[in-house]
Amino acid sequence: MFRYALRRLSSLIISLAVASLVIFLVVEVAPGDPASYMLGINAQPDTVAALRAELGLDVPRYQRYFDWVSGLMRLDFGTSYTYRTPVAEMISDRMRVSLPLAVYALTLSTLIAFPAGIYAASRRGKAGDTAVIGLSQLGVAVPNFWFAMMMVLVFAINLRWFSAGGFPGWEKGFWGGMKALTLPAISLALPQAAILARVMRSSLLDMLDEDFMRTARAKGLSRRHALWKHGVRNALIPVLTILGLQFSFLLAGGIIIEQVFFLPGLGRLVFQSISQRDLIVVESVVMLLVFAVICVNFLVDLAYAAVDPRLRTRT
């Protein structure tokens, strides 16, 4: 198990190194010079050159890459071209919204999906199964921003249980923050839960046809016990894969939901930075997201091994 973890860790480090290089190159070759963009089209060439020097854009590329990477390691992400504030600060402000939102949404989606999937699988072909499939069909088909707007309409405008948008900050207390994130988390979670429930259901149904489930029944386990004791853990592998993918998506993919609820999250930061050619922010956020995705994948790999002993010995 330890060796397995070590191997996954080394592949994590290699992935990070490759990712940083690719991100740097892509952002570098993207058209548009931040200095001339910031100064407008009428700027004098020498002013642009001076700003380029000030932003550190005049040194060779490889030098800038190493500066950037070594900065990342010291959590020094550089200074935003547009706002002239440290990027690290901007990102950490946004992470305080985006990270809890992602975790919240993922927790909700797991809490909805697991029981729904298991329930549907245990009732294959019956009314309960059909209902779960129908609902998940709906969850996948309806866009989450529509859910979001409907919920604002019902819970914020009509019932006045929640505010329609904005984020008060964690300083005003934990529950206040959580309350502000509830509607966005639900709208993010529902489509994810729909997908996850389907994966859980079909993965479990595959397990029901396995020989070892018949063996379990032959020992005297009831259908339900066999499903719980032997089916669920075996069915988890594909579910974990989807779960890992979903977390990565939730961290930055909530741009539309952040817009709907007017939340100062990472997605909006990326969007703004791209439109303002604030390359250093874009680079840093993208790198951070890559880091998060790779870390989540690492955790998923460890979870696989925890679930399935066959993976522990395989290197």
Binding site: E210, D211, F212, T215, A218, N234, D308
Partner: peptide, 22 residues
């Protein structure tokens, strides 16, 4: 369910898949 495994035991053809791998 009370009888299976208790009064009647069963052995299957394919030992590679008849056991729970985890």
């Amino acid at each position: 369910c009370d009888r299976r495994g208790n009064d009647i035991g069963m052995v299957f053809q394919e030992p590679m898949t008849a056991l729970n791998p985890v």
